[in-house]
Design a protein around this nucleic acid. Structure first.
Lengths: 219, 219
DNA sequence: CAGGATATTCAACAAGCGTTGAATTTGCAA
DNA sequence: TTGCAAATTCAACGCTTGTTGAATATCCTG
């Protein structure tokens, strides 16, 4: 038999990757402490000791999952920001264009065939909203790029106080985080009118909403 | 000795209440699975079996913590909404006034001397952002009142499609949730310019931000 | 102060946890 | 094919977990 397996676990990729995939999905859904290494191993169709062999401690596996897609995500966003800056005049891109460059790469990733990116971004939402994990894991992975976006927003809103820009970004980050978490809350609240999984609709509403907020607060 | 205790646990209130207080704080910070009954008992200066005696299973304790302040919170908000509707003309209150009536009761609760409300609202943030707990616990506690707010917003924005109102509320809910979680992320990101614990500043920025978003999307 | 009810602790359980060292299988180069 | 190295499983450990039943303390009523 080659490198396939299809009895109780997932089907494709190396066992190492399958561990990462299953861990990603379970951590995103139930949190770090809500998942056991045995659940992950079982989901990947693999012995429990294999996770330790590849990744060390449980915490190291969690970090490996978190870091696996952080680089690619940052690169996609950086390219989106540079692209919209390149096509703008010398006064720089509009607020809407900058917000769009911040959000659309996520939508693209979420629309991928496999659900890996969806799960990863739900995991980021979990980490970002957690008083315990947030401070440890978010800044190192994303702050540098976020500050580039805020610099661009500063250029689009020259009268803005830096402090106000950060508070507005905080609002954006919160709206985004709740979207990534896919809790299904808006589905029930709206009686099925809105669907948590409809990322396109979420971003289509979020971009003008957030842009208007920035303009109002940072005018 | 009366009903006091002050060796390793908290100092005031009945042991039952101290269990609720400590559970509230720990659940909010580390999540349901990140906290053990022994940690809670230890923090309350109490034997571990006492939690089971008063509340049953661990899950029941979690629900008891969640529900303890849900009623009072809903009542404070309902009064705030009715108050702002009472002072408005027959076209109803403005978007800003409605958002304010949604948020300020939280600020008031958070400014209380003891940290109970702060911890509770962080717990609500944890639950609301969790794909696992959100669907189970949020709707039953808060949806009815939220729909009253959305009705009021519908009146303030007569041309709004119901669907758009829900998406805008989703953005508001996200920004609020991240604020309640107090992750300290904005502190580091802004280099100390903004502070997660400065709820006043958070709401002062959130209200015009969100109101402008509603007006833009639901015009 | 007697005594039942309530509150609290004590002691222990079975189950599940993360982790580890040794055994086994697999992949690959010589 | 042989043999070494990487990958994977096996088996077990010490520890912690939630939960429970019995024992003790505390409170309140009569």
């Amino acid at each position: 038999m080659g490198s396939r397996k299809n009895s109780s676990g997932k089907s494709n990729g190396s066992k190492r990757d399958r561990i990462l995939d299953v861990a990603e999905e379970l951590f995103a859904h139930k949190g770090y402490d809500g998942v056991t290494l045995r659940q992950i191993a079982s989901g990947a169709g693999v012995d429990v000791a294999l996770a330790s062999y590849h990744f060390g401690k449980k915490l190291d596996l969690f970090k490996a999952v978190f870091e696996r897609r952080a680089g690619p995500l940052n690169q996609a966003r950086r390219e989106a920001l540079e692209a919209c800056q390149a096509t703008a005049g010398r006064r720089g891109p509009s607020v809407e264009k900058i917000i769009e460059a911040f959000l659309r790469p996520l939508e693209l990733a979420q629309e991928t065939a496999d659900s890996g990116w969806e799960n990863y971004l739900a995991l980021v939402a979990y980490v970002n909203n957690s008083p315990y994990w947030g401070p440890i894991m978010m800044s190192g992975a994303f702050d540098e790029l976020v500050n580039h976006y805020i610099d661009a927003l500063q250029q689009a809103l020259p009268n803005a106080r830096r402090e106000d820009l950060y508070w507005c970004y905080h609002n954006l980050s919160g709206a985004l985080t709740l979207t990534l978490a896919r809790t299904g809350r808006i589905d029930k609240l709206s009686g099925g009118l809105c669907r948590s999984e409809d990322f396109r609709a979420a971003y289509d509403h979020m971009i003008p909403f957030v842009a208007a907020g920035f303009r109002k607060v940072c005018k």
